[in-house]
Design a protein around this nucleic acid. Structure first.
Length: 884
RNA sequence: GGGCUCAUAGCUCAGUUGGUUAGAGCGUUGCGUUGACAUCGCAAAGGUCAGUGGUUCAAGUCCACUUGGGCCCACCA
């Protein structure tokens, strides 16, 4: 040992150091290689505005485990990194920064504003990337992509043009979700519905021909009444039958509106009469189209009432709601107001209540795209893990709606649609040219007055191309060919619709192949109250703080160990102590081994050595346990049970390797075979640990004698089935039981409990026999030392224990008999139990007190059960017989 | 309205295709500063597996219902 290891593991000294080494030696690179099998994960690109939170930490740790594991297994394992331009989110951030300077984006103009966003991106866009590095992520950073990169944008416009030409993209006036704060359209998925306590307002509309009569309508948004163009009732509704076809006077505006009949009206709800506002409600929109009603938009894009609202123009929509009700009240046209819970869409970026709003937008026709994407999952080409998400996916896909893709913001991919101004002026219709590049002149009239559509595309319209656009699609190239389809996608359930489903559709449409084979959906991280962890709620545990306090490996281990497949994770800070303690344990055990290691003894091939030398049971046992662990970890990783893999690693190291093995070998630590085995097990264990805890495993690896390369370059250990020996394992388990029995007895005898070191000789040599002998000697001495009365009592117990121990001793070495004997023991136990139970029931039944108290039915059922139990007893007896 | 999910030790949670004595971490209690580890070790105590019924030789595990949480989706004005 040239350098003394400190008593505690200090993550700060190692983490940044090793990350740099890995990066400098290009260990994250993955290349297309004919001799290797590809394995590829594309990162769910974090927003450029992103700051590492626990969700990222979990998501990326899982991906990192898979990548490092596959790399060690010999795959060409590529983790494709990148960031998302996050249209609305990023624009909001930059607008906020501008607001501090007292500016609005309009003050700068489009071009200057966009370049401001680029500047911002250059400055802060790498924050999240650096934080991912802090987390240890083995991404191939050379390939870092951004959804607004030149090449990536080419892919986005290409896709738009192709879909347009296929008539899967169209423009039209429809009711969409409008965020008055962001002043843009949103897709259905971007408007998250939240239950709100509101009111149901019952408004009286007078009949035109008899102003004393009213029809009362119920509404939750009275401000939209200014845009009403009809009142609808169910044709079967007897209450209103006579009014159908007649006219009402819409209060305040005094507009004349018709009473129409339609089957969709629910007679039970409210008054059974519905105000129809085709420009402000999706259902009313349908009614409006069907009945050829007027579409009156009463609201401006910023959520204030517009000139159509007459005197309410300029009022905010919620203010207008109040003032309109005031006015109607003064006209005595409010019948009543009742409390009502309703669910309203909220902008997923700024949480403003969205307004159903009639406007001209671009849409993607989804049904034809969904069809093959449904099939890919139904046929099992793409598998969700856990499988239950399949249903969620299919359910959404089966009911898929049109996708509104245009956004009225400036930051994003501008829609590749151009209009010829001159043509537009000469003709009544707008001339549309859809093209990947801006046309120099109008193909119809040859003039050069061309303008581009003002809108940009939904951010998800670029991220749905992520698995292939990151490989420079539509250019065909070797990497794309090699790595596509990618292997595993790791993500949270919240973006199955936004991203996962759409990637599947895009992959099948543009690459004619699935984008990935497995989708692993991990849980959502919540705080201990069950709330989703988020910065705005102030309940977030900052992963960077945990890293600073406990180290990255501790953070990673703890996160993974509590991540039950697909369950949400309730997190509190204490969880990370376990990870820290584990790192420390690994550190100290390694320190112990390194302090006692004679490097020259260890340079042997384990399998060869194992064949040549007769290893003692302790060394055989730990090897057997190690390879059992390896087999387990392989299986658990293959089935995405990361927590179980982490826990297997923990239990083996702590409770088998440290608690038992290292204690048992202490007296024989200089022995050649022990040197070999303890070194080999540690060395191999570090390799298993590396994907989970990359830094500490590297740090210790580098201190092993003769370590040259990084642990990242080592291969994953091969399973050695012949070193797994269940009989050795069983024998050792019995020995442990025995040792614990002795130890507990000593505690009972109120002398110092035996330490492992005291008894290890007994175990390492002739396992059970020695232990019993030692036990006998111990009792004998005890008798001498203590007074007789005290000892007699325990000698009686001693006999019992000795008999029990001898039984074990007799059963155990009889190879092949162990199983039968064990089972026989079990069967006997069961028979005894059952006999006792039957006897008990019989006494109960014959007991007078019982029969008197118990109702007849109970006694009857007890009898039936008695018969059952007797049958069971017969079966057990038969089994017992068979065992002999 | 539809779907998913959970209920196991004082707390937070594991528990594979049903199969020995239902596990871990924290907390509690006891012992220990020993030749790796006080950011600790070793051990102990602590369970009617939400309830009821069913299937089975065998149920925490499978089925049905009940109770009580959480989440997602859906155009009830």
């Amino acid at each position: 040992m040239t350098e003394e290891l400190s008593k505690q593991y200090n993550p700060k000294e190692t983490e940044d150091k090793w990350y740099k080494v890995w990066e400098q030696n290009n260990l994250f690179c993955a290349k297309a290689s004919a001799s290797k099998t590809p394995y590829c994960i594309v990162i769910p690109p974090p927003n450029v505005t992103g700051i590492l939170h626990m969700g990222h930490a979990l998501n990326n740790t899982i991906q990192d485990i898979l990548i490092r594991y596959k790399k060690m297994q010999g795959f060409s394992a590529l983790w494709m990194p990148g960031t998302d331009h996050a249209g609305i989110a990023t624009q909001n951030v930059v607008e906020k920064a501008l607001a501090k300077e007292g500016l609005k984006r309009q003050d700068l103009g489009r071009e200057k504003f966009v370049s401001r966003v680029w500047e911002w991106k250059q400055l802060y866009g790498t924050t999240i990337i650096n934080q991912l590095k802090k987390l240890g992520c083995a991404c191939d950073w050379e390939r870092l992509r951004f959804t607004m990169d030149q090449d990536y944008s080419t892919a986005v416009t290409e896709v738009f043009v192709r879909l347009y030409e296929k008539k899967l993209i169209y423009q039209g006036h429809y009711i969409i979700n409008w965020c008055p704060r962001c002043q843009t359209a949103l897709s259905d998925e971007e408007a998250s519905h939240v239950e709100l306590e509101g009111n149901l307002y019952y408004l009286k509309y007078p009949l035109k021909d008899s102003p004393q009569e009213f029809i009362t309508v119920a509404t939750t948004r009275p401000e939209t009444m200014l845009g009403d163009s009809a009142v609808a009732v169910n044709p079967k509704d007897k209450r209103y039958k006579k009014y159908v076809g007649k006219y009402l006077v819409l209060p305040i505006t005094n507009r004349i509106i018709k009473i129409i009949a339609d089957n969709v009206i629910d007679m039970e709800f409210g008054t059974g009469a519905v105000k129809v506002t085709p420009a402000h409600d999706p259902n009313d929109y349908v009614l409006g189209k069907k009945h050829n009603l007027q579409f009156i938009n009463v609201m401006a894009p910023d959520g204030r009432m517009n000139e159509e609202a007459g005197k309410f123009a300029g009022q905010d929509r919620f203010k207008a709601r109040e003032t309109i009700i005031e006015d109607l009240k003064s006209l005595d046209l409010v019948e009543k107001i009742t409390p009502h819970t309703l669910s309203a869409g909220h902008c997923y970026r700024c949480n403003t209540i969205v307004e159903p709003y009639l406007s001209k937008q671009w849409f993607v026709k989804m049904k034809p795209l969904a069809k093959p994407a449904i099939a890919a999952v139904k046929t099992g080409k793409i598998k969700f893990h856990p499988a239950r998400w399949t249903k969620v996916y299919l359910n959404w896909m089966d009911n898929i709606q049109e996708w509104c893709i245009s956004r009225q913001i400036w930051w994003g991919h501008r829609i590749p649609v151009y209009y010829c101004k001159d043509w537009q002026e000469k003709n009544t219709k707008t001339g549309i040219i859809v093209s990947g590049t801006k046309p120099l002149k109008c193909p119809k009239c040859g003039l050069e007055n061309i303008i581009q559509d003002e809108d940009v595309l939904d951010t998800w319209f670029s991220s749905w191309l992520w698995p292939f656009a990151t490989f420079y699609w539509p250019k065909e190239n070797a990497d794309l060919k090699y790595f596509y389809p990618t292997s595993t996608l790791v993500t949270g359930p919240d973006i199955i619709f936004f991203w996962v489903a759409r990637m599947i559709m895009a992959g099948l449409e543009f690459k004619k192949n699935i984008p990935f084979k497995d989708v692993y959906i991990h849980g959502t991280i919540r705080d201990s109250q069950g709330k989703k962890m988020s910065k705005s709620l102030g309940n977030a545990i900052d992963p960077l703080e945990i890293i600073a306090e406990y180290g990255t490996d501790a953070l990673r281990y703890s996160l993974i160990s509590i991540t039950t497949q697909g369950q949400d994770i309730y997190l509190s800070k204490e969880k990370f102590e376990q990870g820290r303690n584990f790192a420390n344990k690994i550190w100290n055990a390694s320190r112990f081994i390194l302090m006692n290691l004679k490097p020259e003894e260890t340079q042997v091939d384990l399998c060869v050595y194992f064949k040549q030398e007769q290893l003692d049971i302790v060394n055989r046992w730990i090897l057997s346990r190690f390879y059992t662990l390896l087999e387990k970890v392989d299986n658990e990783l293959a089935s995405f049970k990361f927590n179980e893999a982490a826990n297997s690693l923990y239990t083996f190291f702590w409770h088998e390797f440290c608690d038992w093995y290292l204690e048992l070998i202490k007296p024989q630590i200089n022995q050649k075979q022990t040197q070999v085995v303890m070194y080999k097990v540690l060395e191999k264990y570090l390799r298993l640990l590396h994907p989970f805890m990359p830094f500490i495993s590297e740090e210790i690896w580098q201190r092993l004698p003769g370590a040259k390369d990084s642990i990242m370059q080592q291969s994953w250990p091969h399973l050695q089935n012949k070193l797994i020996n269940r009989k050795d394992e069983q024998q050792m388990e019995l020995a442990f039981e025995l040792i614990n029995t002795i130890r507990n007895m000593r505690a009972e005898l109120e002398v110092n409990p035996v330490s492992r070191i005291d008894i290890q000789l007994a175990v390492t040599n002739k396992l059970i026999q020695k232990s019993i002998e030692m036990f006998a000697v111990y009792i004998k001495n005890l008798a001498k030392v203590n007074n007789l009365a005290f000892t007699d009592q325990y000698i009686a117990q001693n006999n019992q224990y000795a008999v029990a121990l001898k039984d074990l001793h007799v059963i155990m070495p009889l190879a092949g008999v162990v199983d039968v004997a064990e089972q026989l023991k079990k069967t006997n136990l069961k028979i005894d139990k059952l006999k006792a139970e039957i006897k008990n029931k019989e006494t109960m039944l014959t007991n007078k007190n019982f029969t008197v108290r118990a109702p007849k039915e109970i006694v009857e059922t007890e009898k039936v059960k008695l018969v059952d139990m007797n049958e069971q007893l017969k079966k057990l007896e038969a089994i017992k017989h068979g065992l002999h």
